[in-house]
Design a binder for these strands. Structure first.
Length: 265
DNA sequence: ATCCGATGTCAAT
DNA sequence: TTGACCTCGGATC
């Protein structure tokens, strides 16, 4: 479930729970040699930047990127099941990482180099949306492609892309340079709000109260990913607002969903 | 038992 | 634009 809110949530949990020495290991083995280098150290702070998570241990940090299928769970001590790339343990808590795209050690320079490649992250208070706007304004690419580009905006993924465009009534094919400034402001503001909610709740809920199925006289519905959404993965079903069939097409290699009526050019 | 897709990214065409 | 990679669970045979 890895869009940016997941990583920020994990960073918060790690900071709250992982105090004192941490047993760092790699039961599956692929991170074993590096794990040994920080094993037993105290965690000096976890931080998320877009979809990247850095778990600091002094001068070194474990750089984690979940990719499409990676998962990290933080639980009370229990017997891990399956392939565990990274395990962080104190007496009180255990974090288990499976299937990440990236899990490796970086020093401060390595970490700065990674961060330097990322656009502003709506979940960070130091984010500068004007940086994103400069790139959007200068691009002929469709806004649906730009929102997925981590060098433009860091942390939004396929669900937030579809949902924020729906909520702002933006045609996904609109080229960046044709996007009105006020619309960009609305998109950024909405992303900040939606993603903050995501960090708080651990789900992606985007449906306004007046459009929830219950309010519309329909049975409640929750997508597999665990939240209530307008269009994501609802191809062929009626739009929650106007009833038009939700469309689906591949944009930048990922399925994009939208309502052709609510998001008309 | 096997297949397929998934909230992502990179390298090779 | 496609394929590869990471792992798991639900759908399908």
């Amino acid at each position: 479930m890895p869009e940016g809110h997941v990583l920020h949530r994990l960073a918060g949990e790690l900071n709250a729970r992982f105090t004192g020495p941490v047993v760092v290991s790699s039961p599956q083995g692929r991170f074993r040699a590096e794990a040994a280098l920080v094993d037993g150290r105290e965690m000096t702070g976890a931080e998320a930047w877009g979809k990247h998570l850095f778990v600091g241990f002094g001068d070194l940090a474990v750089h984690i990127h979940l990719g499409l299928i990676g998962k990290m769970s933080i639980t009370r001590p229990a017997d891990p099941v399956g392939e565990v790339r990274l395990r962080l343990a104190t007496d009180e808590w255990v974090a288990v990482l499976r299937g990440p795209q990236t899990c490796r050690l970086v020093d401060d320079d390595g970490r700065q180099a990674l961060i330097a490649k990322l656009g502003p992250d709506p979940l960070r208070s130091d984010a500068d949306p004007a940086r994103a706007w400069r790139r959007i304004q200068a691009s002929d690419k469709p806004i649906a492609a730009l929102l997925m580009d981590q060098q433009v905006i860091a942390g939004a993924g396929n669900i937030y892309r579809a949902e924020v465009l729906f909520r702002s009534h933006v045609d996904p094919r609109t080229p960046g340079r044709r996007l009105p400034p006020a619309t960009w402001t609305a998109i950024w503001t909405d992303l900040v709000r939606l993603m903050r909610d995501g960090v708080r709740t651990g789900r992606i809920d985007t449906v306004r109260p007046e459009h929830t199925p219950t309010a519309m006289g329909r049975p409640p519905r929750v997508d597999d990913h665990g939240g209530e959404v307008y269009v994501y993965r609802r191809a062929g079903q009626p739009c929650l607002v106007c009833g038009t069939e939700v469309q689906c097409a591949s944009v930048v290699g990922r399925n994009l969903y939208w309502c052709p009526r609510c998001q008309a050019a």
